[in-house]
Design a binder for these strands. Structure first.
Lengths: 250, 250
DNA sequence: GTGCGGGACATCTCTAGAGAAATCAATGAT
DNA sequence: ATCATTGATTTCTCTAGAGATGTCCCGCAC
């Protein structure tokens, strides 16, 4: 019977992390505040450097703190901006349009960088969804106040876009969507798949994500009338920077 | 000019992690497979135990591996199940209803545990959203194949529920929603806010989440006709277990 | 066979120390 | 005033080792 229901006291590094987390979540420490560093923790608890580091690593992996080499470890709070999936509220804005929890877009600059656009053979998955072999791929990066927060990859069926007389990099006024609309391929329906996971190294460096920040991945498929898929948009969002909003009727 | 654009070679632990990640993502290692352990890595690269551990910690924090004490470190892949926000497809199921990426619900048992239901004063945030001072709070836990994957907390305005003759724990056939429907408070509109972050320790232990798994948080607000809020549902999902689906018209 | 014990092996916690690398403020030269 | 350097501080990387704790399997007693 090793089934002794003994309450193992958590290890030191975890208790230190718990203490610090309490201070952060209770508001005793706020956004940019500096946490006690390795040396301070070593001294205060009389432990080795590696153990003090382990305590801080807990908070860093939880996304509550960000280390800055040569400087210190700092509290990190969230100020997500809102992304509307279906924007169709109103009816007194469904409860006066009040956000359930707060978010913040005011006074921020929101910029879009065109990264690349090119024609390539479609991957297996994209081909299956878009029902074509060649696609135009368009990559963008969205930034808020200069910090990148979103990567987007759009896939357009090549045969469909080719009908637009203008080749894709030079789309003319209104962009690709206007040209598609000229051909009668305006989007009338969207499906979105949303998932979240930890970023891969490439995503983390492109978005400048500190440890402990998940990404939200949105796969949006746009359909023209008749159920014809016209765009697959894969978006990778810094989860700390976004809150998604959807609204729909029963 | 310390601005030398020198390409610092990444540290050893990171290169090891990169190698292992490649093997996982390329499919050379698959779902339950065992990764080389601390001792194997120490021997192979001739490094100290702590450094080998650091390499494995990278993958663990990325959610690609799960350590099992006394046993080893194992590859972890995702088999999310689908959660429909607005289920209103059809029109040949919008491209034959095919999922953009794969997910898997077949052959899994999906169970719901009623954890608690009680009447309490509303918190400030809940009071503001639901426009009332007292609420009924209902807590549930959802499991797939015995593993908990979702926690849900529902808030109902107390004054509204009280009109239902039956007190809340004993709602009769059809549950709370049927009783609310009897009073003409059927939900006609929903708003959902979706965000993702790393779990707090309580959430992690309740959901049995290994390191590197974010949670998705859905705040769903249901409105009856006239814009009257009748339920706030706060759901905490294991991000590795879920993919959300929304669909809507332009 | 069933169950129990023990050993091999794995991860986990922690110590002590050292040098590298980045930041930041103060100092000093121009 | 501006710029470069220097030094203190801080995090980062890594070594070497030890004991604790959990898992797994094999063999032994029943």
């Amino acid at each position: 019977m090793t089934e002794s229901p003994v309450h193992h006291e958590p290890p030191i590094y975890r208790r230190i992390a718990d203490r610090l987390r309490d201070q952060i979540l209770s508001g005793a420490l706020s956004d940019g505040d500096r946490l006690p560093g390795e040396n301070a923790i070593m001294a205060e608890y009389g432990i080795a450097r590696a153990t003090a580091r382990q305590a801080l690593a807990v908070l860093i992996n939880e996304g509550l703190a960000v280390p800055r080499r040569g400087s210190g470890v700092y509290v990190r709070l969230f100020r997500p901006i809102r992304r509307h999936g279906s924007r169709r509220l109103s009816r007194e804005q469904w409860g006066q349009g009040r956000a359930i929890w707060d978010s913040d877009t005011r006074g921020r600059s929101y910029t879009v960088d065109e990264v690349s656009i090119e024609r390539t053979p479609a991957s297996e998955q994209v081909a299956r969804v878009l029902d074509c072999d060649e696609v135009w791929v368009r990559r963008r990066r969205y930034s808020v106040d200069g910090r990148p927060v979103q990567l987007a990859v759009s896939y357009f069926p090549a045969d469909l876009v080719e009908g637009t007389a203008v080749t894709l990099p030079d789309t003319g006024p209104g962009g690709v969507y206007a040209r598609l609309g000229d051909l009668g391929y305006s989007p009338v329906h969207f499906t979105e798949e949303v998932r979240a996971r930890m970023p891969q190294p490439g995503e983390a460096s492109l978005l400048g994500l500190p440890a402990g920040t998940p990404v939200i991945i949105i796969s949006r498929l746009a359909y023209a009338a008749g159920g014809i898929p016209i765009e697959l948009n894969e978006m990778t969002l810094d989860a700390a920077s976004y809150v998604l909003q959807y609204d729909f009727d029963a």
